[in-house]
Computed example of a mutant assay.
Amino acid sequence: MQPMTESAIRRSFINASRSETAALHLPQDLESIDWENLDQLGWRDYKMPKRGYLLAPFEGSVVGVLLRAPDTAPPRNRRVLCALCEDIFSEDEVFLFVAKRAGAPGRNGNTVGTLIHSDFTCSRNVRAEVKPTAIHPDPDVVVKSRIEGLQARTEKFIRQVLNQ
């Protein structure tokens, strides 16, 4: 991803009102983010913990999606697969995040949900070290495939928010 300014981040949201984007709290480490190794930027609002935000490249620009976290965490004895990175090794919690749809459908209360790591660690997860195996002798190919999968699934989710 390309580095983004505070104002560009606030303007990028496709399913949030001006008042919602004005009230959002940016990641506290915005200046130190490693933008080159991100396929998406996601964070939880530290002052409004039920809110999450997801930014991702989409059709030549970066779009943001305002998300709502569930009221309760899933049971600890059950592991859930993140729908974006599909990482089977991560121990991070996965929540069902819900986004209102963009435009009139969202204003009418229509939503779409997906399972995402609670701390938005997908870009890190797909870049995790892979050991060569007989099935996958080149770890770089596996990592590249994971990154492409994350990008495609994130784009699909954004299309659902946009009703495309």
Score class of each variant (00 low, 15 high):
residue 41 L to A: 01
residue 96 L to A: 10
residue 74 P to E: 08
residue 105 P to A: 09
residue 53 Y to H: 13
residue 83 A to K: 03
residue 71 D to A: 10
residue 155 E to Y: 01
residue 27 P to F: 10
residue 85 C to G: 03
residue 84 L to S: 06
residue 121 T to Q: 04
residue 64 G to V: 09
residue 68 R to C: 07
residue 78 R to I: 14
residue 88 I to L: 10
residue 92 D to L: 03
residue 61 S to C: 03
residue 86 E to K: 08
residue 104 A to H: 09
residue 128 A to T: 14
residue 135 I to K: 15
residue 63 V to H: 13
residue 97 F to D: 01
residue 91 E to F: 12
residue 68 R to I: 07
residue 63 V to K: 15
residue 63 V to Q: 14
residue 64 G to I: 04
residue 49 P to D: 05
residue 52 G to W: 01
residue 47 K to Y: 11
residue 153 R to Y: 13
residue 144 K to R: 14
residue 92 D to H: 11
residue 33 I to T: 08
residue 48 M to Q: 14
residue 40 Q to G: 05
residue 107 R to P: 00
residue 91 E to L: 12
residue 84 L to P: 00
residue 58 F to E: 06
residue 102 A to K: 07
residue 69 A to V: 00
residue 151 Q to G: 00
residue 140 D to A: 15
residue 80 V to F: 10
residue 72 T to S: 13
residue 103 G to S: 05
residue 138 D to A: 08
residue 62 V to N: 04
residue 148 E to W: 05
residue 143 V to A: 09
residue 148 E to F: 00
residue 96 L to T: 11
residue 27 P to V: 11
residue 142 V to M: 04
residue 91 E to A: 12
residue 147 I to E: 12
residue 110 N to K: 10
residue 153 R to C: 12
residue 76 R to L: 14
residue 135 I to S: 10
residue 111 T to N: 06
residue 129 E to F: 13
residue 35 W to C: 05
residue 56 A to C: 08
residue 124 R to Y: 09
residue 41 L to R: 04
residue 147 I to S: 03
residue 70 P to S: 06
residue 126 V to R: 01
residue 89 F to K: 09
residue 131 K to Q: 14
residue 78 R to C: 06
residue 36 E to K: 15
residue 96 L to M: 10
residue 114 T to V: 12
residue 42 G to C: 08
residue 150 L to Y: 08
residue 125 N to I: 01
residue 72 T to C: 07
residue 151 Q to Y: 00
residue 116 I to H: 00
residue 130 V to E: 15
residue 110 N to A: 11
residue 118 S to E: 11
residue 147 I to R: 15
residue 94 V to Y: 05
residue 30 L to R: 00
residue 61 S to D: 13
residue 76 R to D: 15
residue 38 L to I: 03
residue 129 E to G: 00
residue 52 G to Y: 01
residue 62 V to K: 00
residue 74 P to I: 02
residue 73 A to M: 07
residue 39 D to P: 02
residue 34 D to M: 08
residue 142 V to Q: 06
residue 52 G to P: 06
residue 77 N to Y: 10
residue 70 P to R: 04
residue 109 G to Q: 04
residue 67 L to C: 06
residue 40 Q to E: 15
residue 117 H to A: 05
residue 30 L to V: 04
residue 36 E to N: 15
residue 113 G to L: 06
residue 99 A to E: 10
residue 83 A to D: 15
residue 59 E to D: 11
residue 39 D to F: 07
residue 113 G to P: 11
residue 142 V to C: 01
residue 153 R to D: 12
residue 48 M to H: 13
residue 107 R to L: 14
residue 30 L to S: 01
residue 48 M to L: 11
residue 45 D to S: 00
residue 120 F to V: 07
residue 130 V to H: 07
residue 35 W to E: 01
residue 74 P to L: 08
residue 42 G to H: 04
residue 65 V to P: 02
residue 119 D to K: 10
residue 30 L to W: 05
residue 91 E to C: 06
residue 42 G to N: 05
residue 114 T to K: 07
residue 55 L to R: 01
residue 98 V to T: 15
residue 129 E to Y: 13
residue 142 V to N: 03
residue 143 V to M: 11
residue 116 I to C: 01
residue 72 T to F: 12
residue 133 T to C: 07
residue 75 P to V: 07
residue 128 A to M: 12
residue 74 P to N: 07
residue 114 T to R: 11
